[in-house]
Amino acid sequence: MELAVVSVLGADRVGIVAGISSVLAKHNVNIVDISQTVVQNIFSMVMIVDISKADVDISQLRRELEEEGRRLGVMVAVYHIDVFKYMQRI
């Protein structure tokens, strides 16, 4: 399994989960774990996804998810799990 972290943050609205997960599904990326919450109309979601069978590399996946995020009015960040873990050490 090759994992990545996808985080989404922005004003709550209908379709955020559907929009982000449809990009993942289109590229054969499996959602391994997901957490989401809404606090005072602010939506936040963190997904751990398996990119080992994806038909695009992580850079292309990041670009498409960021584009979908712009369409939805939310910020999207995508990190390989190793990069994410290393960033947390600092």
Rank of each mutant, 00 (worst) to 15 (best):
E2D: 13
V5A: 08
V5Q: 02
V5I: 15
V5K: 00
V6C: 07
V6P: 06
S7Y: 01
V8W: 06
V8K: 01
V8D: 09
L9V: 14
L9M: 13
A11R: 14
A11L: 07
A11Y: 03
D12H: 03
R13S: 15
V14N: 11
G15W: 09
G15D: 11
I16V: 15
A18T: 15
I20H: 02
I20D: 00
I20T: 01
S21V: 14
V23Q: 03
A25D: 01
A25S: 12
K26R: 15
H27K: 07
N28A: 08
V29I: 11
I31W: 07
I31L: 12
V32K: 04
Q36L: 02
T37M: 04
T37W: 00
V39N: 07
Q40F: 04
I42N: 13
I42M: 14
I42Y: 11
S44F: 05
V46P: 03
M47H: 00
M47Q: 02
M47E: 04
I48Y: 03
I48M: 13
V49S: 07
I51M: 07
S52D: 02
S52M: 02
S52K: 10
K53L: 06
A54E: 04
D55I: 10
D55Y: 08
V56W: 03
V56S: 00
D57A: 01
S59K: 14
S59Q: 12
L61M: 03
R62M: 04
L65E: 00
L65T: 08
E67L: 15
E67V: 10
E67Y: 07
E67W: 12
E68T: 08
E68G: 01
G69Q: 11
G69H: 12
G69F: 10
R70L: 14
R71E: 13
R71D: 14
L72Y: 05
V74Y: 01
V74L: 10
M75Y: 07
M75F: 11
V76W: 01
A77L: 11
V78P: 07
V78I: 10
H80I: 09
H80C: 05
I81Q: 05
D82V: 12
F84A: 14
F84S: 03
K85I: 13
K85Y: 13
K85R: 08
K85W: 05
